[in-house]
Design a protein around this nucleic acid. Structure first.
Lengths: 131, 131
DNA sequence: CTTGACCTTCCAGTAACTGGAAGCCCTATG
DNA sequence: CATAGGGCTTCCAGTTACTGGAAGGTCAAG
């Protein structure tokens, strides 16, 4: 399979797939004309990567997950540890964003948003205490 | 004021302040010894930037907000538009993260996390449909 | 006079791609 | 058979918002 086909099937841009090869996540064969030639196993790895990335795992997490995936002797605890850590980060990020959202939506509600210069948003950015 | 003092007062690392000068957000004077010499107005701008960044505004947003801040003839509508747009992005990001969190926490709960290789997390990364 | 804390500039690296240029390869059509 | 198109290749550069580190000048204290 050429890169274009894999791209469609794994829903990953060709550029991304080449990048994944560069950093050693997949190692497709080469046809005699120099084109990358993807095996089924490459295709599956790329799909796996696409899904892991869609869940927000970092590339390094993905590398580790992929290694565990191909290792039939893995311990599920190792996978779970990565996922749990990632989950914790996401939860903390959500909390951060919710706080920002609350502050911001309050300010937007306060601001008249007309042609006058008086603006509570700017006023708040002046005075708002830093955490 | 030297960069160290400003750094403490604005709660921004010196590196960041130098960077902000590089990209034209502040333009401190220079003492004869070559040291940056920050006026009160620079200090206020930096504090403003720190707060805007803490609310997640991009540097370009900050640049625009800063310009509006110093412009006494601004329309509050312009400020509000930036904040509203940013708020919308944050809300959508929160939704994305919540969806990821739900998926992930479900998987983590499902996974026994022991020494056995059987793992619902990996299984899901194989099969989970891409959006 | 030396030590240590500041300050300076400049270069490089981070994460995960993305865009673009220059150029080869393959197929189909006039 | 020439050529036009689309797909493929590599390589270089840019993105965001800094951060780390090296090499070296400045200043106050002891």
């Amino acid at each position: 399979m050429n890169i274009g086909d894999v791209s469609k099937r794994a829903s990953l841009p060709p550029k991304t797939i080449r990048y994944y090869e560069d950093i050693g996540l997949v190692t497709p064969e080469r046809a005699t004309n120099g084109y990358r030639s993807f095996r089924k196993s490459d295709m599956h790895k790329l799909a796996f990567l696409g899904r892991s990335r869609a869940l927000g795992f970092t590339i390094e997490d993905c590398r580790n997950l992929l290694a565990l995936w191909v290792d039939q002797d893995r311990a599920s605890a190792d996978v779970r540890a990565i996922a749990k850590e990632h989950l914790a980060q996401i939860e903390s990020k959500i909390l951060d964003l919710q706080e920002i959202r609350d502050t911001l939506s309050h300010l937007v509600r306060e601001c008249s948003g007309d042609e006058r210069p008086d603006c509570p948003i700017l006023k708040s950015l002046e005075k708002f205490p830093m955490k």
